[in-house]
């Protein structure tokens, strides 16, 4: 029941944002609101088992504030640096690629998805594969640094900095 309510509320919010400015009941027309409510409850009924898996920790608003701070602050700076780095490598053609395995010790699916997407968008790294059992990531690295190759479980600080700590605070 709780899963149904959460899913339909999120679907209804997206519907409201997409149809803003359609009428004069503040911003929406009466018909739009009624139809949106019907569609949202249908979607919520059909997909309640897919999106919510019996764990409601993402309802905590503190996690959302942290997530927004993460996207505006460290993530955006790293992304700008990533693009200047790619520009440098396009112009000079100086690359030293390789695929390394890192273990960030994340447990949930949402956390590992967020980390993989962050790694793809940040300097010189691209996530290639995930180990299903241990949640280890295989990362394609465009400029492999020598000190990272010495130990066998690679130190993730060379690859993605403090991102796993941020993601752990947000999603776990």
């Amino acid at each position: 029941m709780k899963a149904f309510i959460v899913t339909s509320l999120v679907a209804f919010l997206v519907y409201l944002i997409l149809t803003a400015g359609s009428g004069n009941l503040w911003l929406w027309s009466y018909e739009e609101l009624l139809f949106g409510l019907m569609t949202a409850s249908l979607i919520g009924y059909l997909s309640r088992r897919i999106f919510v898996k019996g764990n409601y920790r993402m309802l905590n608003p503190k996690r959302w504030i942290l997530a927004i701070a993460y996207f505006i602050g460290p993530f955006f700076i790293a992304m700008a640096r990533a693009n200047l780095d790619v520009a440098y490598r396009v112009i000079t053609g100086r690359i030293r690629p390789g695929i390394v395995r890192i273990s960030p010790n994340l447990k949930t699916d949402l956390g590992i998805t967020m980390l993989a997407n962050s790694i793809t968008l940040t300097p010189g790294t691209l996530s290639v594969d995930v180990d299903d059992q241990t949640n280890d990531l295989y990362v394609h690295w465009i400029n492999v640094k020598e000190p990272a190759l010495k130990k066998k479980p690679r130190d993730y600080r060379y690859v993605c900095g403090t991102f796993p700590d941020w993601v752990r605070r947000i999603a776990e």
Binding site: I95, R96, P97, G98, I99, R101, V128, Y138, V144, L149
Partner: peptide, 11 residues
Amino acid sequence: MPARAVVDDLK
């Protein structure tokens, strides 16, 4: 396989 790869853990 990645071209000119230094290391390939996945392989």
